[in-house]
Design a binder for these strands. Structure first.
Lengths: 200, 200, 200, 200
DNA sequence: GATGAATGAGCGTTCATTCAT
DNA sequence: AATGAATGAACGCTCATTCAT
């Protein structure tokens, strides 16, 4: 698929190390040489496993999107009630973002100028995640539980909310004197609640 | 305040040009030499007005925070009704972000690796903006209109929501097939609505 | 002869592929890895057949000189008249250069910095080609048909003429608005004619 | 004209050093770093005087073409007799090539793959030199002294001859046991002679 | 008040080559 | 007979920054 697989463990190591360096350095600050130093190999070696920097990051993006999709799916597996499903999606999304800030950074925060160089395949994978939200919203709307006009728009709105929460936390921009768990919980509550149809 | 102020107009020009270049080039793509070329002075000259690149950007961040504060204030000026105030704050915040993506980028999106080098002063200025939300929420809660436990936490939540909306839009991550105005409007509606106390 | 000959067909394939790649890529743009990819073997394999890049090219140079010699010989085979022989040699030389620009490039155009590393053997082979010209000139002079003082010098002169024609054409330096066939023909005519003894 | 002139002597020095390194290293083997080392400055400094490697070489090419033109012109200045003019042009051309092998290398030997990146301006300058030959040939033909059909074609032919002589000598491919002066002289004699109309 | 001159560090990438298997 | 794994050196180039004037 990508440059001959040669030694799978090292390939894995490169991906993992890159991922972790991303937290400290960010995309812009991360160079092939730094990655090489961190894995204890020469910079040239990385090119045995990835055609170039873009491909390395593209691989990480795909992995992240895949992982997120799996976690979202598992989160809703067997859950029938639309609101419970929606809540589960939100929780899974936040959990994913907070537990995998490195993945999150390249997946959703990286500047579009860089992003645009990656194949559309990525975007398709990304949309699949959004669709999970849209489907759940649509189903809830059908059952009269959610107040939704256009499920795709609403899914984007809730995604934006969650994205805001994750990215502020990752960037350590939420005041330290605030209880982060309480913050996250309230964010979920209100996000989910904002879709609830008022039933008198 | 910072490096001998010598010739105020030039200092201003540097800041403005930098800000405008930020839109086109992004932070990573912006170099001192490019700024120099754009203002028609030598690169060295910039160092007469700003100690280094960090300080230049730090100044812009402070300006942005100030500008945002002013716009938020103006938006609520004379508006008494808490919900209308909250809505106005949301609208102003979004408008600021979407009209000044350069400011927004360095203020709220830039990687912490960069940010951490900036003085705490910035964060204080940032908190002042959040406080406007908190105050409005608190006032609404006092009047029984909002359902709020800890106004600082809730302010952070609504800020996160708005931040999500702005940053997805700036990063051009919102599906082009979605009506962006509708998206923004719904985002505001739900965000504000999520604080409304249910009054039967 | 050079590095254990192991599997003759593969050795042959490496040489041929290299030769063909030379046309597209030129010497500078040609790397061992590209050759390896083109023959469908690993880069390491080439080193089983050739000590290093130099030896590979050296082998090609020798082959080229050999091929040129054969073609020159065939061209004059059975031709008795000195002027016709000389003309045939010129034609064969030009034909060889224009039909095998890859060979020609490494044989006669490549920078001496590279060439100097090659064994003198090559130059001996090269001289043999020149000798064909010298012999023909000498014979013509003996018969009073050519005006030649030192046949080796004169052979070098005519070689230089032909080399100029080939290398300008290969390097695409001859104005496109000029009829190249006419150019080549005139070049041969004058070159041959310049040796003709004036017989009134 | 090209990157700010800053310190003219250093700019000159870069050009001269590059020119001389070209003999030893050839175009392909010559790097910005090598040039930098040779002038005793950092590689970065070169970029203060030339936008990039291409511009540096392009400047040299233009200089060379200019210099050649001047020498050709001076050589025929005041010379009326067409054959003497033609001979003078040949002599000047050869002298230029042999005395400035570095200029000659980039002007006429460098691979077209590189050449094509240079502006057409260069080619125009190059054609101007060829035109001097063509004009002289045409004039001689008008006077019935030269046997010329198409002066542009014939000029190309004589240029090819001369180019062959220069490039073989520069590349040190002419047998050392041959008297080079004799070789050059004979080359000129025959080249010029080949245009002479046979007058009985 | 402004700049010309210069640089060391770093970037992504390619290369010929080696060595153990 | 062939290769997978790895590397040091080099490439063209850009960057933020310094310093003397």
């Amino acid at each position: 698929m990508s440059t001959s697989a040669t030694q799978p463990e090292l390939r894995r190591k490169i991906l993992d190390v890159t991922r972790h360096l991303l937290i400290k350095e960010g995309y812009a600050g991360l160079s092939m040489r730094k990655i090489a130093r961190a894995i204890g190999y020469s910079a040239t070696t990385i090119y045995l496993y990835f055609k170039n920097k873009d491909e390395l990051f593209h691989t990480l993006i795909l992995e992240g999107l895949e992982l997120l999709y799996k976690q979202l799916q598992e989160g809703v597996d067997g859950v029938e009630d639309p609101e419970k499903r929606l809540r589960a999606l939100c929780e899974q999304y936040l959990m994913f973002g907070l537990r995998n800030p490195e993945y999150y950074e390249i997946m959703f925060i990286m500047h579009p100028e860089k992003t645009s160089r990656f194949p559309v395949e990525d975007f398709r994978k990304g949309r699949r995640n959004l669709q999970l939200f849209a489907d759940t919203l649509a189903r809830g709307a059908d059952q009269g539980l959610f107040q939704v006009e256009d499920s795709r728009v609403s899914a984007s709105v809730i995604w934006a909310y969650l994205h805001g929460v994750v990215s502020l936390l990752i960037a350590q921009r939420v005041d330290v004197r605030i209880n982060h768990e309480q913050f996250v919980e309230e964010a979920i509550d209100r996000a989910v609640g904002s879709f609830r149809a008022i039933t008198v």
